Simulated scan of single mutants.
Amino acid sequence: MDKLAILIPAYNEAQTIGKVVSDVKAVTNNIPGTSIYVYDNNSSDDTTAIAQEAGAIVRHEYAQGKGAVIRRMFREIDAEVYIMIDADDTYPVEAIPEMYSRVVNRGVDMVVGDRLSSTYFEENKRPFHNVGNSLVRWLINFLFKTDIRDILTGYRAFSFRFVKTFPVLSRGFEIETEMSIHATEKRMLVENQVVSYRDRPEGSESKLDTYGDGFKVLKTVINLYRGYHPFAFYSIFSLIALIVAVLLFVWRVAIPYSNTQMVANLPTLIVSMILLVLSVIAFFSGSILNAIQTNDKRNFELALIHTEDRLKDLNHEQ
């Protein structure tokens, strides 16, 4: 079991991976029990060879996608502290000791490397990425009542209990969004750490699809909100259906009936009744799912206890 595991997912990063591994080694020399893992995701260049030459432990994930790589890393590696950093040399490795210290000394479950509070908007040359980061940050902090300042950053530190209780569902770059919401909803201790950001070196290409990945992130946010807050989610549809049903009934049925003593718009009456029934169904669906979610939270707390016991056993074996 490692004291500190540095996790570097990599896909065609031959230009920068060697420097990243070497820089990480330099700043972690004073942390005994550190291992640097590079997980190659079907690179077609020399990423693997360069990472090995630089001194990293290289492993492979053949299912394409960052989410698949992180799932593999979290399953295979046992460590007291994990720090994940991108292989594109955009993050300062000098922040690693402080991130490590926060997890060890303060019991933080996730340290978020906050780019948006420093140099990101000046360094990043893709304006839609700037807008997207700000939008996602606002949306998640609004919906989930949290204060994570950089939702999409790939620079994070994790505790053992976070890694071993985090169910990886996403396959792509929306995985960072999933991590942020999971930590918030499971009441884990999350701290922001401001880090500088530098854009990719010339010739290094980003793997992000601005629009495609952006829509995936928004879809992930909506799905997670539905899963973690089902009562609030379904209540929105219940309220909309109820309002439309009442307006249709009053405007097209009740008012004409008061004047003529006849139901002149029978189809409208039927539609309003159907909407009323849908409103009731949505309301009680949210209520039932909310009760299930409450039970899931209890089960998760029990799983945390089991995870803490496992960590103690691993330390005892050492």
Rank of each mutant, 00 (worst) to 15 (best):
M1P: 13
M1T: 14
D2M: 08
N12S: 07
D46F: 03
R71A: 03
R75V: 01
Y82N: 09
I83E: 01
D89K: 04
Y91E: 13
P92D: 04
V103Q: 10
R106Q: 15
R106N: 14
V111I: 14
V112K: 02
R115E: 15
T119R: 06
Y120L: 06
E123W: 01
R126S: 01
F128D: 10
N130S: 14
L135T: 10
V136Y: 04
L139R: 12
I151D: 05
Y155I: 07
K164V: 12
V168I: 13
R171D: 13
R171N: 14
T177I: 07
I181E: 02
A183D: 11
T184K: 11
V194K: 15
Y197V: 03
S204L: 02
E205T: 08
S206A: 11
L208F: 12
T220I: 00
V221T: 08
R226W: 01
H229L: 10
S235F: 01
I243Y: 04
V244S: 10
V246I: 15
V250D: 08
W251S: 09
N259I: 10
M262F: 09
P267Y: 09
G286R: 00
I288H: 02
A291L: 11
Q293T: 01
D296H: 09
R298P: 00
E301N: 13
L304N: 05
T307Q: 08
E308D: 14
D313N: 10
L314D: 01
